Amino acid sequence: MGGAALDVRQLSVGYGPVRALREVTLEVPEGAVVTVLGSNGAGKSTLLRAISRTLSFHGGAVTAGSVAFAGRPLEGRTPDRVVAAGVSQVPEGRQVFARMTVEDNLRAGALGARGDRGARSAALRRVHELFPVLAERAQQRAGLLSGGEQQMLAVGRALMAAPRLLLLDEPSLGLAPMMAARIADTVREINAQGTSVLLVEQNAALALRLASRAYVLEVGEVTLSGPADELAASDEVRRRYLGVVDETAAADASGAAASHPSLTRWKG
């Protein structure tokens, strides 16, 4: 891995008077998978919107800080220029064009991307190799695909721009475990092919297996960061995001409850 593909410095974001991010700093090294963990409302999606320059569509704005990709600032660029610079986002909830065919959804992903017809054909081959089902259902309306297939289409659409950095917003959301595992395998393959990945994910166990580095967002601020394996071993992360409870503490709590049973009904 080389230098920083993405460099976010002291980034603050607001939706009107509401502060959504406060002085967030993170890096995605070139060729790496980095994950951002956090509960609902922590600011994870806001962070991705700030990077992809789509905040204004949601009523938000950057109030301080900077975002640079490959050493060049993204401030002042329109979303299509961010895509042309090599950054593509897969939004939460997939958001495919339901009435359009699978093929037309993929073509839409190449709009504004750099490269000639040959580059677009190469990108389409790559998508079909990653997701053969999209080739099989090229003429089917996207709205008729299963949830997992729609997620594949959303990722494939983003890859049509041949990004150097892929922003993934909750790719496993609403998927069965087997399908979530397939998406995770695809993220590994995309990264192995040379694309850096910034992954926002509530499934912390999955995200920490994929990533080399992780950040934890709480109420718009980075509260923990470090190598993913170290965060996975952290008692705080295990308790709050992996559902692992310290056995000694649990036994103590259980014993205390037995000694001092709680009231089941309040009597006036």
Rank of each mutant, 00 (worst) to 15 (best):
T264K: 13
A98Q: 15
T25A: 01
G156H: 08
P91I: 05
L231M: 05
A204Y: 04
A251K: 13
A181Q: 15
L242P: 05
A138C: 02
A214T: 09
V237H: 01
E230I: 00
W266D: 13
S212F: 00
A135C: 05
R209P: 05
P261T: 05
A176D: 09
G156V: 14
Y15T: 15
V216Q: 03
D185V: 05
S56V: 15
R126C: 05
R94L: 06
A5H: 00
R240F: 03
A249I: 07
S172K: 04
S225C: 07
A158R: 07
L224V: 04
R157Q: 08
S172P: 05
A5Q: 00
G60M: 10
D116W: 04
G65K: 04
G31S: 01
S172A: 12
L111V: 15
R239L: 13
A84K: 15
L124F: 02
Y215P: 01
Q202I: 05
G38C: 10
A119I: 01
A20I: 11
R94S: 08
V102E: 01
T101K: 08
E129Q: 14
S45H: 10
L217K: 04
S262L: 14
G59T: 13
Q89H: 12
G76D: 11
L111D: 12
A257I: 10
N105V: 08
A70F: 11
E149A: 10
S196C: 04
M1S: 14
P227T: 03
V28T: 03
V83T: 13
E23H: 09
A42W: 05
G118T: 10
R240P: 03
M152A: 09
A20H: 14
T54Y: 08
G86N: 11
